[in-house]
Design a protein around this nucleic acid. Structure first.
Lengths: 187, 187
DNA sequence: CCGATCATGTAATTAGTTACATGATTCG
DNA sequence: CGAATCATGTAACTAATTACATGATCGG
């Protein structure tokens, strides 16, 4: 059963495990502080990935007793797992699936809405973008308290990516509002 | 069973059905020419959504005989479906899930790669971006042959979104390559 | 006339989420 | 001392994909 192959989620977890052994729960917290920004994963999802990786021999686990907290199962990446990870990292096949963007569906059919209804839609979206923009700015500047990202320039570049995207999306929003402010066909 | 609620995919299909009745297969082709760019759906997925929508009373269907091709089941949006769609369109809750970006995972762990291995990764990603950029440019300019997008400015704005994103991502790629060209920590 | 493609869809499987469970510890 | 939160995870379910089926028509 479940001879399913590895997904980017699997590799994200293998990557995090190269930073040291972790329990599923701990991986959840770590992921939230790191890859969450460009590869969100829920904790339950992490658990199922770990089982799959263990079946493949890419990780091993030991039960660790604790006092004051439930026992935990701590996972470590194996040599085989590291080889698999490195092969994936080096693979140039550009697996760029198209992102799914709910707001754009709404906009695509927005001529069904009354004139006044589009503005609030854009406004609430703008608020999200602004918030994320400052998060990314802080990450890129390396001043994110309690985040302790490893200090190598690849990490910073991923934050720069988010920052630039937010800026581009905000600029686009400006354009949208400008277009809507002028009368035209279909409005 | 399956009292599951409607997802953005469901609403995308309802939206397409406002353009006229279609079979599942026809919706697949239509989606490919329209919402595909920001909300990709596979054909099998469309069929399951249609069943769900029918259970909810948001669409109705009739079997239509054909000669030269298999019979088809043609779906139409109901008044109830239209009301549901409009309510969703007007809802300002910003359902902006974070996009998942496989390349960024690779980059996040790229210090595991040999120096020379990062460049080809970026190059193949760049090629994808360039291709999409010109697609979006054509869509935004309204010169996409065989695409027959409805001509209202909301459609064009969604194309502008894609165009701006591609430009932003390409600019970021330039930055990445510039940073990698200079010696520094973690390279 | 044979292989590819079109038009239509179903079945099987995987990926990922939301809801639930459980005991310890900490805060007001 | 009761409520919230932490730490750990499982179960149930939904969303979405890949693989399969089937007959007609079309191009060489």
């Amino acid at each position: 059963m479940s001879r399913a192959r590895l997904t980017p989620s699997s590799f994200a977890i293998l990557g995090l495990l190269t930073l040291g052994p972790r329990s599923g729960y701990e991986l959840g917290s770590l992921a939230e502080r790191t890859v969450q920004h460009f590869w969100p994963m829920t904790r339950p999802h992490i658990y199922t990935e770990l089982s799959k990786l263990e079946r493949f021999g890419h990780v091993t686990s030991v039960e660790v007793e604790q006092r004051g907290a439930p026992d935990k199962r701590v996972y470590s990446i194996t040599e085989r797992g590291e080889r698999e990870l490195d092969a994936w990292l080096a693979d140039t096949d550009p697996e760029v699936q198209r992102p799914r963007h709910p707001l754009l569906i709404k906009l695509f059919f927005a001529n069904r809405l009354e004139a006044g209804a589009v503005r609030p839609l854009l406004a609430s979206y703008r608020a999200v973008l602004e918030a994320r923009k400052s998060t990314y700015a802080a990450l890129a500047a390396g001043v994110m308290p309690g985040q302790q990202w490893p200090d190598n320039h690849y990490f910073r570049l991923t934050a720069r990516f988010g920052q630039r995207r937010m800026e581009a999306d905000l600029a686009w929003l400006d354009e949208v509002e400008a277009v809507l402010a002028t009368p035209g066909p279909g409005a």
